[in-house]
Design a protein around this nucleic acid. Sequence first.
DNA 1: GCATTAACCACAG
DNA 2: CTGTGGTTAATGC
Length: 234
Amino acid sequence: MQEQIITKNQCKICDEKSCAVSALKEDELELMSRNSSQVHFQEEEMIFKQNSPASHIIFIKQGLVKEHMSGPNKKDQILKIVKGPAFLRVASKLKYNINSYSATTLTESKICFIDIGVFKDLLFKNSSFSYEVLISVCEDGLYCFDKFVNQTQKHIHGRLADALLFFSSEIYNDSHFTLPITITELADLIGSSRESVSRCLQTFKKEEIIGFNGQKICMNILDKTKLQIISKAG
DNA sequence: GCATTAACCACAG
DNA sequence: CTGTGGTTAATGC
């Protein structure tokens, strides 16, 4: 039984502010502080669950989170891996009151729960804030389009290369990193089967494009250029 | 037709 | 959970 520590928020002095929150004025920050709270999550804890009522806007202060959804055949699909600082569920929450997907932490994380009423108030009151939120929602949308097209048109090699490059450049900024997910999850992320991913990783290894070992896979991208070529070629 | 790609299954570690 | 081998269905040349 692990205890979650809820801390009263001090948005004003928070150093993990999103661009949007930076646009808030002093009194608005104060308002957000009073109506949000920060929760410490361990790794592999669910933040919210698909089909359950959504209560708050989520802000990932720090940590890695996967957004995932199970389809009609009950297979889990990873929609996106998000690194804090980032807002979650804005699109879903403003429109519906039910979570259309789930979110689970991949690492220990600091998560803020922001009251939806207050969030909406701020959207109306402060246009710079709204604009920044809009930007992040747009980016999200574009990312989806991008992923949709890549997913549809590329072969496994390309999709896997995409994912590896994503972790390397978007998440870790390093060619050497430990994969935060299992092979099975990696398959769920790129819309493939674990067997295919496993085989494909072996191929990359044989061609000395990547190196890896261990249960929690330590990845080392040896030939980034080649990986980019594979990614492009699909 | 034949080759390739990749999913599904089964089984082992 | 992961790796492997066999099977199979779809698609391409």
